[in-house]
Amino acid sequence: MAFHEIRFPANLSFGSVGGPERRTEIVSLTNGHEERRTPWAHSRRRYDAGLGLRSLDDVAALIAFFEARAGQMHGFRWKDWADYKSAAPSLAPSYRDQLIGTGNGVNRVFALRKAYASGPAQYWRPIAKPVEGTVLAAVGGVELRPDVDFEVNAMAGIITFADPPENGGKVTAGFEFDVPVRFDTDRIAVSVASFQAGDLPQVPVVEVRL
Rank of each mutant, 00 (worst) to 15 (best):
Y123T: 02
S55Y: 11
E67Q: 15
W40E: 09
V152D: 02
V171F: 03
L136C: 06
V179H: 01
A117W: 03
A138Q: 07
G75E: 06
G15M: 09
L29R: 14
R44F: 03
A70K: 11
I6Q: 12
P130G: 05
F65P: 02
S191W: 10
D147R: 14
T172W: 01
D97I: 01
V181S: 06
E166M: 09
S55T: 15
D83V: 05
D83Q: 14
A10N: 11
S43L: 07
S86L: 07
N11C: 07
A49F: 01
D58R: 01
G103W: 01
S191M: 07
A2T: 13
D83E: 15
F66E: 06
R69Y: 06
H33M: 14
M1Y: 10
W124T: 01
D184Q: 15
A138D: 05
V179I: 13
G119V: 09
L112Q: 01
W40L: 12
E34T: 08
A173I: 02
S118W: 04
F76M: 12
D80P: 07
T24P: 01
F177K: 01
T134S: 13
H42W: 08
A87T: 04
V190A: 04
S13M: 05
E34C: 05
S13K: 01
V171W: 02
F195R: 08
W81I: 13
Q202Y: 15
K79V: 11
S118T: 04
L200N: 03
F150P: 00
H74Y: 12
G105E: 11
A138Y: 02
R145Y: 08
V17S: 10
D97W: 03
F175D: 01
E21V: 12
E34K: 10
D80Y: 05
A137V: 13
G52Y: 05
K79T: 12
R125V: 00
D199A: 12
P180V: 00
V27Y: 13
V190E: 05
F76V: 09
D199R: 09
Q202M: 15
I26V: 13
Y116I: 11
P20W: 01
E143N: 10
P180R: 00
R22C: 10
L91K: 14
Y116K: 08
G198T: 03
V135R: 07
Y47H: 14
L200V: 06
G140T: 11
A87R: 02
Y84N: 06
A87W: 02
V109K: 10
V181N: 05
G133Q: 04
P164G: 10
A137I: 12
I6D: 07
A64R: 14
I6N: 06
E143T: 07
Q98I: 00
L53V: 00
R22Y: 13
S28P: 06
D80S: 08
A70M: 09
Y95E: 02
P165W: 04
R209E: 07
L144G: 03
Y95T: 00
R23L: 14
M1H: 13
S191T: 09
P201D: 12
K114H: 00
N153F: 09
E207Y: 06
P180N: 01
P164C: 08
G168E: 09
K170Y: 04
A197Y: 07
A173K: 02
P39K: 08
T38I: 11
T38Y: 10
R209G: 04
V203T: 06
S191Y: 06
F195N: 05
M73W: 09
I159G: 00
S28I: 10
Y95S: 04
G140H: 13
R37W: 15
I188T: 11
L12M: 08
P201C: 11
S43P: 02
Q98G: 02
